[in-house]
């Protein structure tokens, strides 16, 4: 039900993010989603890709420390209040959201897609399923 997110450690120095994107580009890796979190000292870039293990290996070989996390890829209706509805469901189920970000869908799609990192994936997935909100798995994500 969940998808794997790759988190990569970035030093706080100019060009570090670009070095990483170059490694990905050289290996022909297509990014589905990306979000960057940083402090004044360092950064963590979170990636959604189709080939998780291949990408993690490419990054590791290039010297980038990374870790995999299970996150939920949620289809959010592309209408006003769409995100609000999803958050309401999660809130109602007592799920804590650590962070979230939007990822690329396809242009014609009626829906937007967001990645949710929550404290309890099962609880969140159950609540969303019950409310008929669609959650994508890795193949569903690749098919977008």
């Amino acid at each position: 039900m969940s998808v794997k997110q790759i988190s990569v450690f970035l030093e706080n120095r100019p060009g570090c993010l670009h070095e990483m994107t170059k490694v990905l580009a050289d290996s022909n890796i297509d990014l589905r989603g990306l979000s960057l979190a940083e402090t004044s000292e360092f950064g963590i870039v979170r990636l959604i890709v189709d080939d998780v293990l291949g990408t993690a290996t490419v990054l590791k070989d290039a010297g980038f420390i990374n870790s995999l996390t299970d996150v939920l890829a949620v289809e959010v209706p592309n209408v006003p209040g769409g995100l609000n509805k999803v958050l309401e469901i999660l809130d109602g189920a007592g799920v804590n959201i650590e962070y979230m970000y939007a990822i690329l869908g396809n242009k014609k799609s009626e829906s937007a897609y967001m990645i949710f990192r929550v404290d309890d994936n099962t609880k969140a997935a159950d609540a969303l399923n019950n409310a008929r909100v669609k959650i994508l798995d890795q193949s569903g994500l690749s098919a977008l």
Partner: peptide
């Protein structure tokens, strides 16, 4: 030097 054991996706934990 950062180690794989120390690193997580969570900014707060690393902090």
């Amino acid at each position: 030097e950062m180690t794989p054991e120390m690193f997580t996706d969570n900014l707060g934990e690393v902090n």
